[in-house]
Simulated scan of single mutants.
Amino acid sequence: MTRRIGTGSLVIATHNAGKLKEISALLGPHGVNCLSAGSLGLPEPAETGTTFVENALIKARASAQASGIVSLADDSGLSVAALDGRPGVYTADWAERQWFEGKPGRDWYMAMGKVEGLLCEQGPDTPRDAWFSCVLALAWPDGEVAVYEGRVDGALTWPPRGNLGFGYDPVFVPQGRDVTFAELDPEEKHRISHRADAFAKLVADQFS
Rank of each mutant, 00 (worst) to 15 (best):
I69Y: 05
S71E: 02
L72F: 01
D74P: 08
D75I: 00
D75Q: 02
D75K: 04
D75W: 01
D75G: 10
S79I: 07
A81N: 11
R86P: 00
R86H: 14
V89K: 07
V89D: 01
T91N: 09
D93N: 13
W99S: 14
F100G: 01
F100W: 15
E101N: 02
E101K: 01
R106D: 01
A111F: 11
A111P: 10
M112R: 14
K114A: 01
V115T: 02
V115A: 06
E116Y: 00
L118T: 01
L119P: 14
Q122A: 12
P124W: 08
D125R: 11
D125Q: 14
R128I: 07
R128H: 11
D129A: 15
A130E: 09
F132S: 02
V135E: 06
P141E: 06
P141D: 03
P141R: 01
P141I: 08
D142N: 02
G143M: 02
V145K: 09
E149K: 11
G154N: 06
L156W: 11
L156N: 09
T157A: 08
N163A: 14
L164Q: 10
L164P: 01
L164G: 13
L164T: 04
L164W: 04
F166R: 00
Y168G: 09
D169K: 07
P170E: 04
Q175F: 08
D178M: 10
V179E: 13
V179I: 12
T180C: 11
T180L: 11
F181R: 05
F181E: 06
E183T: 03
E183M: 09
D185F: 13
E187H: 12
E187Y: 00
R191W: 04
I192F: 13
R195D: 03
R195T: 03
D197G: 02
A198C: 12
F199E: 00
F199M: 15
K201D: 07
V203G: 07
A204G: 04
A204L: 14
D205F: 13
